[in-house]
């Protein structure tokens, strides 16, 4: 096995994991505190990509795209929360799944009307478009390294926020015992809106960051949101730490699986069969992993056990 390829795939996995974390953090917070299953979280990621790409194409400044697009989308998220989602907090999960599925349909169609049907393509900003030499003769994309760095910084920031601030205390309290927070006499509505806005902002940020890599397309939200759900389920709902670890594991499984599964399978079965089976199995890998985790730990790695 070549070390260079292994390390590069490891970096790819970490980069994907970090992206998943940015999405999963918001999901797990809204779930842990408001008890809300929000399928439309991926739509905020998509809107982030569209606004980011549009502003970047207009102004030519990627920084400006980040600075403007994230608050715009967070604003849209807060409007959605106030008008629609707020009424769903006390409702059955089923109602939440359906209503937020309705939101997905709405936002997907909306971007198809507002933006060109074929979506947008934007380049990587000039100063980040080079590759960086690493040991073992690896040349790795500076832009992807920047995403890894940003993601890890944000993960640390989230950890500090949750463990060191008053908001974080309320978040932890809400995740472990929802009724407690109601009893504390805090302004619950404001807390919920704040947490929702924070989650949306992280998701939108992920969208802006990914736009130069993936482009902006209608429907890009669902593809990733399902994986993000897998992540928070593996990590245990409500746990930021759990979703960070699960995001990295999922990212690594995905990228290493895509890369080495055929080689690993070939140890057990004929090479032809291995090459035929590998792509199919690698698409199933994270689901198999999740089913396995839930079989042994029905509330995920760091989820609270039911009473």
């Amino acid at each position: 096995m070549e070390w260079a390829l292994l390390i590069e795939q490891f970096l790819n996995g970490v980069q994907f994991g970090v992206l998943l974390f940015l999405l999963a953090a918001g999901l797990t917070l809204t779930f842990g505190i408001m008890d809300l299953v929000n399928l439309a979280h991926g739509s905020m990621y998509m809107l982030g990509a569209f606004f980011g790409a549009t502003i970047f194409l207009w102004t030519g400044s990627f920084i400006l795209a980040l600075v403007l697009a994230v608050p715009i989308v967070a604003g849209i998220g807060i409007i959605t929360e106030v008008t629609t989602l707020r009424t769903l907090y006390q409702r059955h999960h089923l109602d939440q799944v359906l209503a937020t599925f309705g939101l997905i349909l709405f936002f997907n169609e909306l971007v198809q009307i507002v933006w060109p049907l074929e979506g947008l393509t934007v380049p990587v900003p000039e100063y980040l478009s080079s590759t960086v030499p690493l040991p073992f003769g690896i040349e790795y994309s500076l832009y992807r390294l920047m995403i890894i760095g940003t993601g890890i910084l944000l993960a640390i920031g989230m950890w500090l926020l949750v463990t060191r601030t008053r908001l974080g205390m309320l978040i932890r309290a809400g995740a472990s015992d929802r009724e407690m927070v109601y009893a504390l006499g805090t302004n619950i509505r404001l807390l919920f809106t704040l947490v929702f806005g924070l989650g949306t902002a992280l998701s939108a940020l992920a969208g802006v960051l990914m736009a130069p890599i993936l482009g902006a397309n209608s429907g890009m939200g669902e593809q990733i949101i399902i994986v993000a759900f897998v992540v928070i389920v593996i990590g245990g709902i409500g746990s930021i730490r759990g979703s960070f670890i699960a995001a990295l594991i999922t990212g690594l499984i995905d990228s290493l699986g895509r890369s080495f599964l055929d080689v690993i399978l070939a140890l057990f079965i004929p090479i032809n069969a291995a090459e035929a089976a590998a792509p199919a199995i690698s698409s199933m890998l994270i689901y198999i992993f999740m089913a396995g985790i839930l079989f042994f730990k029905p509330t995920g790695l760091f989820g609270k056990q039911p009473n």
Partner: peptide
Amino acid sequence: PDQIDWSSELSKIKA
């Protein structure tokens, strides 16, 4: 049509 990030495949091509 789910996969839209080819980082893993591009690394394999490089190798």
